[in-house]
Amino acid sequence: MYTQALDTHGKEPVVAAAGESAAHAARFQSRVDADEKIEPKDWMPDAYRQTLIRQISQHAHSEIVGMLPEGNWITRAPSLRRKAVLIAKVQDEGGHGMYLYSAAETLGVTRDHLFEQLLSGAAKYSSIFNYPTLTWADVGAIGWLVDGAAIMNQIPICRCSYGPYARAMVRICKEESFHQRQGFEIMLTLAQGTAAQRLMAQEALNHWWWPSVMMFGPSDADSKHTAQSMRWKIKRFSNDELRQKFIDVTVPQAHFLGLTIPDAQLRWDEATQHYIGGPIDWSEFNAVLKGNGPCNRERLQARRTAWEAGRWVREAASAHAEKLAARTTQAA
């Protein structure tokens, strides 16, 4: 059940006694090993809970910050069909943020608390959304590349050990299947369009390729969370495995569009049957992560402004609900 309110159920949350802890932990791990799902009220190691809260909330934050770069273009979408599709897509991202916040709330945190962490800058979200959408082709490239990379990342999470997270991801993956296709369709139309449109498409690929490749996170050698997350089945594939998969499926798509991947060293390797790219410049990734990307400030500011501007509305609705309840009691 999606509610933190159930965790206590009239008594204190289950805190394992010193002696019990090892037994609980062993039973927990054996359940995970047996591919059983863990549900909100089940005993779980605190570190598992904290890891999930961090990962699910980061994921949720990414969805709602991710509404901004594309949302920018709703008013400027170049046809009414594109406008409707873009509204539906950005709306989906809001929905996905909601499903994920709901899943996180089952672990005993409130959405307001998670929101505060985002707005204060304490919580992370996917760095990719700190890049600007300067042309319409950027909207296409986000759908094609960023959503493509996201799907690659998300499909394995549908089998994650934590039930509410896995269920949210199943729903999200199902809904997202149109996102990447609409992005590719935009790119295809541009690629088959005028010279100016083709140039726009190529430049968008140039902008988004490396950030998309970096979306999978640091190399396995440098990733501190991977091993434990794999044991807990929160994560199913390593960063590098997923990244390779993404490159392998995306390069032929770029060829189909007649666009050039901005990696001079990229080559097909007959022996491994993989595309091998040049080295990734992690200094850029780290700079954006530290807050020095092109749009870090704007994105957070936009979320803060919306939250602050909406405060009186949220308060009004709460006040009205209280009055409504009081009137109902009086009438009874």
Partner: peptide
């Protein structure tokens, strides 16, 4: 303001089937 209360949502996907839990949301009333 405190957070709007949490509600659990159950959807009947079509006539003849039972309502099924699908997730949660916040609402004031």
């Amino acid at each position: 303001s405190p957070e709007w209360p949490l509600f659990e949502v159950f959807i009947r996907s079509r006539a003849g089937l039972e309502h099924k839990h699908v997730g949660s949301l916040h609402a004031a009333d």
